[in-house]
Design a protein around this nucleic acid. Structure first.
Length: 424
RNA sequence: GGAGAGUUGUCCGAGUGGUUGAAGGAGCACGCCUGGAAAGUGUGUAUAUGGGAAACUGUAUCGAGGGUUCGAAUCCCUCACUCUCCGCCA
């Protein structure tokens, strides 16, 4: 969440930023500022009262120690009357603070200056493209047909076991998943990321920390009996590893990677883009996450973009990198690059990775800090990116590499998969 | 699931109602000592937030949240977590 000090000092910048993100309720900023004012006033009243109560209590203690019972008794009688008033003030303060926090949580992160103006995906800016779009044979098929032909995934049985959108990977289809996960993790750890295997369920506090709560409950599966949420991405448990910590200098930058299944309800999504692997409720993803010094976060963002770009090059997939416009960015992000690969049989671009700098929006919620050389504690910046989400990568690999009798695989996967191609 | 024991600062650890934000030790930082280092020795060393130009100072925090009290790390309640034993189990 945003920091109130920043709102106080840079009100105009905040409003401009919110406008760029198409935030509709700019008046909220002024409401917040006056609520903040009211809190501080109330605090002074309440704490002054508390201070006199505290010092009176101390006096009573001293009188008792001296054995002056009468004086202590007299003081106690005097002080007892203060309590109701103080309690009322405390309650009022608490209410003010709760309302304030609820409002502050409604404000999204501010966009970086390089974020393009715009409202819809059409306004995103193509930063660069790479790879070559293959010329497919006339009889080329979309991946959901190839999946059937080569018996890689059984969607029907997955639906029988759980529901639609829960793929049942099978045989070489399952092995391909495992090979990709293994390759991605190796690629990340070689670049200095530490591998984690986190819990796949998180509690409410953790979901709140990365910004899934409040507000996005509907997108996560909720285990109501125990109060857990199934993770929608490894970002949630892994970023929270450092929640409420002051990270030591020599631990920076923190570079973490994790493979996890991701669970998404995708409530309300419909239409043609849900076919095959394009949109599912459970999918595999390898994530990279960094916690870095604020001065370095944009440099690190570029480094992460390059890291993922190389991965797509190794996979020999045609890709493009987009800088998302203000209206298409996520609530918590300050700058996001999306990676899309071209799925040659569907003839469309599929999002396979999203790399974002959250600056201190997440770390402010989680209180992930470091100590400045002058001894002051400051918030770190958090970043993350998918490297990569599997389903659409698989879709593109299958479609783009299909031949009459087989589907070839990129060289990097040969040793992991134990073969150079998929055969029917 | 049942029974019991715990949770205190960076770490260890004392503390069962009154100057306790918290003894003592370790660690760390700075200084003294030393040719240099070690040892020794002195000082300092939590977080958040309000007020203040600053010096400084108020408030809160001893797993979390409530309660009793003039006053709670200490008493009561609820919850979470850790450990031990039993049960169940991959």
């Amino acid at each position: 969440m945003l920091q109130i000090n920043y709102l106080r000092q840079h009100t105009a910048i905040v409003k401009d930023g919110l406008a760029k993100k198409n935030f509709p309720n700019l008046a909220l900023v002024d409401e917040l500022l006056s609520a903040d004012e009211a809190i501080r006033k109330q605090k002074i009243t309440t704490e002054t009262q508390q201070a006199s109560l505290n010092s009176a209590s101390k006096e009573i203690g001293l009188l008792m120690a001296k054995g002056d019972k009468d004086a202590a008794e007299q003081k106690r009688a005097e002080v007892a009357g203060w309590k109701d008033d103080l309690a009322a003030n405390k309650l009022a303060l608490q209410k003010l603070e709760e309302d304030f926090t609820a409002m502050l949580l409604q404000l999204p992160n501010l966009p970086h200056s390089s974020v393009p103006n715009g409202k819809t995906p059409e306004d995103n800016e193509v930063v660069r493209e790479g790879g070559t779009i293959p010329e497919l044979m006339p009889a080329a098929k979309p991946h959901w047909e190839l999946i059937k032909d080569y018996d890689l995934i059984d969607f029907e049985t997955g639906a029988k076991i759980a529901g639609s959108g829960f793929p049942l990977y099978k045989g070489k289809g399952a092995k391909l998943q495992r090979s990709l996960i293994q390759y991605f993790l190796d690629y990340n750890t070689e670049a200095g990321y530490t591998e984690y295997m986190p819990p796949l369920m998180v509690n409410e506090t953790t979901a709140y920390g990365t910004g899934q709560l409040p507000d996005k409950e509907g997108q996560m599966y909720h285990i109501t009996a125990d109060g857990f949420y199934l993770i929608p991405t490894a970002e949630v448990p892994v970023t929270n590893i450092y929640a409420n910590e002051i990270v030591k200098d020599d631990a920076l930058p923190v570079k973490m990677t994790a493979y996890t299944p991701c669970f998404r309800r995708e409530a309300g999504s419909f239409g043609s883009d849900v076919r095959g692997l394009n949109r599912v409720h459970q999918f595999d993803k390898v994530e990279i996450i960094q916690l870095v010094h604020p001065a370095k976060s944009y440099e690190v963002l570029e480094e992460m973009v390059n890291h993922i770009e190389r991965l797509l090059q190794f996979l020999e997939l045609p890709y493009r990198i987009l800088r998302l416009c203000g209206g298409d960015m996520s609530f918590t992000s300050a700058l996001t690059y999306d990676f899309e690969v071209y799925s040659a049989a569907q003839k469309k671009w599929l999002e396979v990775s999203s790399v974002s700098n959250f600056e201190n929006y997440q770390t402010n919620r989680m209180k992930i800090r470091y100590k400045e050389s002058d001894g002051k504690t400051q918030l770190l910046h958090s970043l993350n990116g998918s490297s990569l989400a599997l389903p659409r990568i698989v879709a593109a690999l299958l479609e783009n590499n299909q031949q009459e009798e087989f589907i070839s695989l990129p060289k990097v996967l040969h040793s992991y998969f134990g073969a150079t191609m998929l055969e029917g």
